[in-house]
């Protein structure tokens, strides 16, 4: 509790500063010096924690789970442990290779310059659906650039500093992506939702939507190039007032399990309307 005028002034000044920041930042994401300094401090810590976490997970997989097996198998324990360790390590490498191969394939298919980044953290508060990646403006990663994985789109860059960037995922309620249903070519607006993963809204009432239909980006929102996979329709219904159809969309990318992403570098928020991936598939 403030005990003097000085204390009260400090509280008021800081609260005012916070409010000024809050109201000014609702307009659009900023990536100034302050953001750069904080991100520069956090990047090595986040990377170290991620590194240690991976090692600890590997340790659990390769050693601690095997303690029970050791007891049961007596004299073969050492050999089994060594072999299992190798298998786990090889499997990890194989999975990583597969992931990176798919990433590379998509990277080559894209018409735009891209950069591959590693996911090094997730939203600290849990209220927003964001992830942190280890590439920033030094690599050309800037706000409003599209982020994708081979399975489907992930989101867009929300903030970036020189060394690190934050990705707002398509499941966040503040995100919206202009999409098409691939089969019928009907357009709709995909938004994130707290109740569902994503919701495709404002689709023509007469459109023949079916569960399982593939949803792709339309390229009309100026952020995502045309033809990138978004997800599949899960349940179709009429909107509240009956003017449009809406559908729950199951994102193709497993957003909670992503380890590497591709950032599509280009003019921020201003892609050309040239045919994108669809013509190449």
């Amino acid at each position: 509790m403030p005990r003097s005028i000085k204390d009260l002034i400090v509280a008021v000044v800081l609260l005012s500063f916070g409010l000024v920041l809050l109201f000014s930042s609702f307009e659009k994401g900023r990536s100034g010096t302050f953001v750069s300094v904080i991100y520069s401090v956090f990047k090595p810590i986040q990377q170290t924690v991620t590194f240690v976490e991976e090692r600890v997970t590997n340790l659990f997989k390769s050693y601690i789970w095997l303690v029970g097996v050791n007891k049961k198998n007596g004299e073969l324990a050492d050999e089994v442990r060594k072999l299992r360790t190798e298998i786990v390590s090889l499997k990890e490498k194989e999975l990583e290779n597969r992931r990176l191969k798919r990433v590379l394939e998509l990277k080559n298919r894209l018409d735009f310059p891209t950069v591959v980044a590693q996911v090094i953290g997730q939203d600290a508060s849990g209220f927003f659906r964001t992830i942190l990646i280890n590439k920033g403006s030094d690599e050309g990663v800037l706000p409003d650039m599209a982020v994708t994985v081979p399975e489907g789109i992930v989101g867009k860059i929300n903030r970036s500093s020189a060394v690190m960037a934050q990705v707002m995922m398509i499941t966040d309620p503040s995100m919206s992506v202009d999409c098409r249903v691939e089969r019928t070519r009907d357009r709709g607006l995909l938004t994130g939702s707290y109740s569902y993963s994503c919701l495709l809204q404002y689709v023509n009432k007469e459109a023949d939507l079916k569960n399982g239909d593939l949803v792709v980006t339309s390229g009309l929102d100026g952020i995502f190039p045309r033809g990138l996979v978004v997800g599949t329709l899960q349940s179709v219904r009429l909107s509240e007032h009956g003017l449009f159809q809406e559908a729950v969309v199951n994102p193709s990318a497993k957003l909670s399990e992503i380890e590497e992403v591709i950032v599509i570098l280009g003019i921020q928020g201003g892609f050309s309307m040239e045919p994108g991936l669809e013509s190449k598939n």
């Binding site: 204390d7 916070g18 000014s24 900023r30 939203d123 209220f127 903030r159």
Partner: peptide, 29 residues
């Protein structure tokens, strides 16, 4: 302590803003 507390809490809020998708200034407040 009130004075150090308020300074650290404000800084913590700013850092939280940057590590989450929050608009800058929300968590300090």
């Amino acid at each position: 302590d009130y004075f150090y507390g308020i300074l650290s809490v404000f800084t913590l809020g700013l850092a939280m803003d940057l590590l989450s998708g929050s608009p800058l200034g929300l968590f300090p407040v």
